[in-house]
Structures are given as structure tokens and as C-alpha cells.
Design a protein around this nucleic acid. Structure first.
Lengths: 205, 205
DNA sequence: GGGATATTGAACATAGGTGTTCAAACCAGT
DNA sequence: ACTGGTTTGAACACCTATGTTCAATATCCC
């Protein structure tokens, strides 16, 4: 009931509900109940509940995108950036399970989420090729991006289900990806085990 | 209207509709229309429409599982088996787009589909380790399976959207995976470019 | 405290899906 | 042509979600 806090509660509840029930199995009544507010309040704060899923997905994607860009702004080596990016996702899936379930559930069916893991990686992969860090031809970039995104999402799921700790999963998956790109096994392992910096928060204007 | 053909038409329409609209956005009326039959016929042939999605998913998974096992029964090298498996999925996503969209959409949220890509690969990965074909410790098997599954699903999606041909995507992704597992780049490429045998049909009893 | 703004919870009409029934039409195989 | 099993399409009552309204209440900021 506190002022304008409703928007946040609605969004948080929406992430949770969408993640566990699917993008169109959530009624306004359910949403209100999960958010701990009255049904009318939902209609007061959400212009069109039909588009709520799209909006939430787009905002989650954009927020993660911003945070990652800021968080390794000073990292120069494309390989380190790539490994950090992968590990950021995996760690966050561990720290915010609802976020993780949402991402893994819709990563491959929701367009706006796809940009999240084809945008920043794309930059780093191209940069890595340009600098001679990797040894595959540029024409294979789509396949490489598929591997990076697929491996990350799949690892998030693995962590969410407790098959591996986020630390191990993150380092192992990052190392596997780097090796696939042509980086020597020992160096790949070393990069993937660097201390992972915090994922910085970003103010929304 | 042909005898008992209704079951098949319902299942085919269900795969198509679930893939494009989501697992719970499909009404019986819609399903009947898409299958080209009367609404009552759906109720005559489907015991509980509520469970239709689960049944379809489980059957798709089981069918692919069987076909793959039979299709490389005589292949001995675990690395070749693994590469073939990945490429079977990618080729089929190209040849049967509805099948591919269904798999990619629900691969990470539907339990029965997950077994499809953790079962056979698991065998080959363990076999490969036992034979000294790969150079990573057994404790990392979960991460490796995550990479294999995630890369395959992601590649299927890429092919479905026309970013790469199924041949190139299949060979490239298989090669990337093999390299990540410690196989020399040239050998990985060679294995991933072997002639891909047909995916055999399997009779259902 | 007072005024602006939000939240509440009940009520309402509407729309659409559900599962079932059933008689008429249809299609085999004999 | 007869027979057994299927399909058809309309009709039924039930339930749930929708989006909106509104007066009463609660909260915040000055």
C-alpha cells in the first residue's frame, strides 16, 4: 500500500509467477494476490495486463544488459570480458532464483530476452577475432554465439537445480567456451577462475 | 474423418499450436480447427486435454531418443557419436520446423524434454572419459552436459531462423563442442564434417 | 491537520472456455 | 445393402477471467 511501491511489488510478483506458471497462465487476480495488493490496484498501475509479460521481459533484459556493460567497463581482454559475462549470469541465477528461472524459461522463446545474450557477447567475440585472440573464421560467429548463449542458459538451469555450485558451474562453463574458441586449456582455466567482480547496480532514469 | 487418423491429426496440430502459442494457450476449439476435425472428436480421442501437452512432449522426447540410439548403434567412437547426435537434432529442426520450434521452446522448462538431451549424451561423455578421449575430470560432467544441450538447442533455433544452414550450424557446433572437450581442432573439424547418416525411423509397438 | 493521491474491495456485465450430450450423417468391411 | 464404430455440429449449463466503476479508507507530503 505505500506510495508507488505497488509498481515494484507487481513487477516482482510478475517475474515470480511468469517463471513458475508460464507467460499466459497468470490472471490479474493471482497477480494481485501474489503482490499482496488489491485487484483494482493492478489495473491502476498497469496500463495493459496483456502486455505485462513483454514489458517485464524487456525490462529484465535491458537491466541486465546495462549492468553487465558497466560492470566490466575497465576490462580490456575480450576473453576475460566474455568469461565474466557468462559468470555474471550464472552467479545471478544463483543469487536471485526467480530471476534465473524467468530467464532460463523464456530465453529461447522471447525475442527481447535473446538480445540480452546476443548483444554484449557479439561485441566481445568480434573484438576477440580482430585481436587474434580466437582462431575461428568470422563466418562462424552465429554458431559461436549460439554456443555461448546456450551454454550460459543451460548452466543457469543446472545451478538452479543444485547440480553444481554457481562458482564451479561458472568457471567450468566459461573455460569450456574459451577452449572451444581456441584458447589454450590452461589459460582458459586461469581466465575462468579470476576473481569475479560484483555486478554493479545501475540507476534507472 | 478417416478411421483413427484423428489421433494423428490431433497430435500434429498440437505440436504446431503448442510451439507457436505456448503450452497452455491452446483451447480445444482451436485444436479441433487446426486439426480439421470437429470439437467433439477431440474429446472422443483425448482422454484429458489438460494433460495433452505433457503427453505430446513425452512422446516427442521418447521418439527422438529411440531414433538416435538406433541410428548410431554401430558407431564406436564416443566423439563421433556425440557429434552425430548434435547434428541429428539440428538437421531435424531444419527438416521439421514445427518439431524444432516445439523442442527449442520447451527444452529448458519441460522435464520430459530434458531427459532427451541428458540421456544419450551422458552415456557418450562418460564413455569418452573412460577411453581417454577427453581431458576433463569427471566432476565436470554436469557442466559439459549443460554445454552440449544448450549449444544444440540454441543452434536449432539459429537454424530455424535462417541465420545459418543446418549443415554449417551442425558441423560448426559439433566441432566447437568437441574442441571444448579437449579434442584437437583439426580432428574435431574432421569428425564434425563426416557424412551424417540418416536418422532411422523406429516402429512403435 | 489538511489536501492530494492511491489503495481497497465489492459489484457488475461480458466474453470465452469447459466438458457433456445426442441424433444425424458418414465410412469401413462383409 | 447391412452393420458397427466414428465423426459431426449444435446445444447445454457451469465456471472463471476480464475490465470497469465507485465510495470508503489509508497514506503521504506540506
Amino acid at each position: 500500500m505505500p506510495l508507488e511501491r505497488s509498481q515494484i511489488r507487481i513487477r516482482d510478483a510478475a517475474v515470480e509467477l511468469f517463471a513458475e506458471k508460464g507467460s499466459s497462465e497468470v490472471s490479474v487476480t493471482e497477480l494481485a494476490k501474489a503482490a499482496g495488493i488489491a485487484r483494482g490496484t493492478v489495473y491502476n498501475n498497469v496500463e495493459d495486463p496483456q502486455n505485462l509479460f513483454e514489458e517485464v521481459a524487456a525490462e529484465l533484459a535491458a537491466e541486465m544488459y546495462r549492468r553487465i556493460l558497466v560492470s566490466y567497463a575497465e576490462v580490456d581482454d575480450p576473453a576475460v570480458r566474455l568469461a565474466h559475462g557468462i559468470r555474471f549470469y550464472i552467479r545471478r541465477a544463483h543469487e536471485e532464483p526467480a530471476w534465473g528461472r524467468f530467464i532460463t524459461r523464456f530465453a529461447f522463446s522471447e525475442g527481447s530476452l535473446r538480445e540480452m545474450w546476443t548483444g554484449p557477447p557479439m561485441q566481445d567475440v568480434l573484438l576477440g577475432i580482430a585481436r587474434g585472440r580466437y582462431d575461428f573464421p568470422q563466418v562462424q560467429v552465429p554458431s559461436v554465439l549460439a554456443m555461448i548463449g546456450g551454454t550460459s542458459v543451460s548452466a543457469m538451469l543446472m545451478v538452479a537445480e543444485g547440480h553444481r555450485s554457481w562458482r564451479d558451474a561458472g568457471s567450468e562453463c566459461a573455460a569450456l567456451v574459451l577452449r572451444a574458441l581456441g584458447i589454450d586449456a590452461d589459460e582458459a582455466r586461469a581466465i575462468a577462475c579470476l576473481e569475479l567482480p560484483p555486478l554493479l547496480e545501475v540507476e534507472v532514469s
